[in-house]
Design a protein around this nucleic acid. Sequence first.
DNA 1: CTGAAAGCGCTTACAG
DNA 2: CTGAAAGCGCTTACAG
Lengths: 319, 319
Amino acid sequence: MAPSTVSKALNGHNSISQITKERVKSLAVEWNYIPNEAARFFKHNKSQTIAVVIPDLLDQFYVLVIKGIEKIASKNNYNVIISESNDDPGKEVEIIDNLISKRVDGVIISVARNSKSVEKLKRLEQLGTCVTLICRSLPNNIFNIVASDSEDGALKAITFLKKRGHRRIAHLMGPKGFQASKQRLHAYKKALLANNIAYDETIVKETNLSAKDTGEAITALLKTKDVPTAILVFKSYLSLDVINFLKKKYPDKLKKLEIIGFGKLPLFEFLDNKPLASIDEKPGLIGEKAAEISFKNINEDTETKTVEQIRLKCTLAKN
Amino acid sequence: MAPSTVSKALNGHNSISQITKERVKSLAVEWNYIPNEAARFFKHNKSQTIAVVIPDLLDQFYVLVIKGIEKIASKNNYNVIISESNDDPGKEVEIIDNLISKRVDGVIISVARNSKSVEKLKRLEQLGTCVTLICRSLPNNIFNIVASDSEDGALKAITFLKKRGHRRIAHLMGPKGFQASKQRLHAYKKALLANNIAYDETIVKETNLSAKDTGEAITALLKTKDVPTAILVFKSYLSLDVINFLKKKYPDKLKKLEIIGFGKLPLFEFLDNKPLASIDEKPGLIGEKAAEISFKNINEDTETKTVEQIRLKCTLAKN
DNA sequence: CTGAAAGCGCTTACAG
DNA sequence: CTGAAAGCGCTTACAG
């Protein structure tokens, strides 16, 4: 029997007689034949692979994103490969070069802080690879992106805090250099406005994300004239640092400063002193949507391609 | 210029003149040429890839293992792909089939509970793929394995507890069906013996790992005549459930029952009520060792292959 | 319905 | 030192 016949039988080509198909398939089982995917992919000039690039697997937010991606990928019989940039722009460029040489069909990436990968990502797109950003955006919005809707999240958080009686709600913002920090600061302002609370920049403090810097920001907040009673925090892991700091330095404030942060983490369930609530950004859904965009693009003519910008609504989760 | 010349120039073959090499390399840069790895791997009949199969990425223990593996892999210019079995034996078999068809060069796997993959793994080895187990063993020790030395860990934990004055040290064991449960129970017994503490099976309780079952086990422990003052716990995530349970049902016992568990988790630093200490199983090192075994085997004749069984010493980490 | 032929992008043994 | 040829394991367009 010719290799071509075997190949067609195995792939269920309908030019092959039923009897031949069955014979081939049973022999394949008997001989433990498993096709060489590398050869197949090479022949087809596609890798049947989606690559995910994230800063760090220890951040469970991204693990949940990955689970969402894998759910969709496995439905489509696609493989998922994961790389960690550790927020190192140089490493990220290396990773993308590697992905180019692998000819992956799609890349889903949460870009490193201070990413230098824009050109590489453009290159990927030229080569026909679908690029989808998650969570973190890049200037000019030239790529697909799936992220949570910070404005929606902030609005829900501030509204909830106001209902609980808070009027002095501070914001602990991320580094001013980050897009996300600006976005969330803006969302915070808008949410205050919608709740008829005046914006007061003296209770907005920046942190470079280190525990030390966060502590200093909190100290500064506690020293303001009209001390805030609640705080909207840039990112959930930061909330942990805030709580740790309060426990050590201002244990009396622990109950007097209610915290809501962006992001809900599985580990929260084990904490005694936890944030009042979290803005659940639906990482699993973010992953699913990003994967769906990838597959839509992979199966589409490049002519008709449009850039998709998706902002998913958040929910407020009591911890 | 012939493709063969280009190929050799790019790969730094020394039959190529310096001048040609430079010309080729500069043109490659100018034209943005990035070689097609799929073709290369296919040609070489190896994928330059190590696969890691673990139960769940949300378990940070495994994330740390992966980081260890990636450290070694990237040094060797190898790729790492990750799959999650979710402890589902059927899923695990599927994953391994997939890895076979990918012709990966090495597989590092923490097998699913009740794994049915032994035959598949043997198959992988026949095909020349190096298989290395991590943490969880399979009957007959036919595969390479890297795990922590439970006996060493238990000894350090029990000795430490005795120094703190404890004489009644209970053990919360994992499901009897698991190899690891038996191993750690045995390690616990040996450590008691070494410390001249009599073994008492009434203070050894089993849990099926669910929070509910763990709670019942703890309740039973607290109802024994001579209530234990310390407890050696099968796995760190279990310690969290134990603490949560005590907080809810027996808050007064929280300070009277000191806990040491196998495994140290990054998230411990955020807990108020944390285990007294943890047996640090060095997940990063486990990953590194497993990767090193893979590479040694990949670069070796299959003739000389021997099975490696590595048990890494633990340290006791204060939380 | 079956099979012979060509080719995917590389590398390597060999000839010059 | 350079290049022509063959081949890795598959699939597909084509011939029969």
